[in-house]
């Protein structure tokens, strides 16, 4: 459902992405794993058209995101946890999204329930939200249109252990009902817990991909990760 086809992205002097190819199928949770600055966010932004690939193409449902009919109904996205106006309430941020998508207001309550934000919390301005609450708000926003594909940039950042368990349950459930989930992470443990496939990137290149078992071959993911990313960390800003 998601396909990266030889995607490269060159900023003035830095190659942020270098010939990245991988696919994410229905019913799976794929973790896009790599150190900070490996190009994960850039790749996800290119997929949704917020950034432009220098060469290659990234498609969802076989087309460029922007060319889909009602893309946000089909693909739920979450980017930085600061992507919500600090002076707006969480509920209002979701209401704007629901309005844009032409959804009834009760959908806002439904997604709030799905991510476990209480009604009282939803009426507070985002400025006062903890990082974990912002992540839940972001996931709620991504779920608004009942998408078949989810693209989440570092959804596990700032979640406490209960939050991680909740996220794992939510994403697992979505994948089991046929969703394709692509999430980025620099947290090995999180990827190992949540994902069934991993794409490891470093210095903008795909270093390895496959199921957890294929990649690890009896080692811990941590060993695998450090073997793969040796010398590839902190490559680009």
């Amino acid at each position: 459902m998601i396909e990266f086809n030889h995607v490269s992205k060159v900023y003035k002097e830095v190659k942020a992405l270098d010939d990245v190819s991988f696919t994410v199928g229905a019913g799976s949770v794929t973790a896009f794993l790599g150190p900070n600055g490996a190009g994960k966010s850039t790749a996800l932004r290119i997929l949704v058209g917020l950034s432009r690939a220098t060469s290659g193409s990234a498609t969802v449902f076989g087309r460029a995101y922007a060319e889909l009919d009602g893309p946000a109904h089909r693909v739920g996205t979450m980017f930085a946890p600061n992507a919500y106006h600090p002076g707006r309430t969480g509920r209002e941020s979701l209401t704007l999204g629901a309005m844009t998508l032409g959804l009834p207001r009760r959908r806002v309550d439904e997604v709030l329930d799905l991510v476990g934000l209480t009604h009282r919390e939803s009426r507070r301005v985002v400025k006062g939200y903890s990082l974990g609450m912002r992540q839940r708000l972001g996931v709620a926003h991504a779920l608004l249109g009942r998408p078949g594909v989810l693209v989440l940039d570092e959804p596990g950042n700032g979640l406490d252990p209960q939050g991680m368990r909740w996220m794992r349950g939510l994403l697992r459930g979505l994948a089991d009902s046929g969703c394709a989930v692509l999430l980025s992470s620099h947290l090995l443990h999180e990827a190992e817990e949540v994902a069934d496939r991993v794409v490891v990137v470093g210095r903008g290149r795909v270093l390895a991909q496959g199921t957890m078992d294929e990649l690890n071959r009896g080692r811990t993911l941590e060993q695998t990760f450090f073997d793969l990313t040796a010398g590839a960390d902190r490559s680009v800003a």
Binding site: D69, G102, D113, L114, V115, G116, L143, R146, G148
Partner: peptide, 21 residues
């Protein structure tokens, strides 16, 4: 914040009616 697990009732990859723009 409520930490209870919420049952997932999302509809997976259900196609969306055309003209959703």
């Amino acid at each position: 914040m409520s930490e209870h697990m919420v049952p997932v009732t999302e509809g997976g990859g259900a196609p969306v009616a055309a003209g959703a723009r």
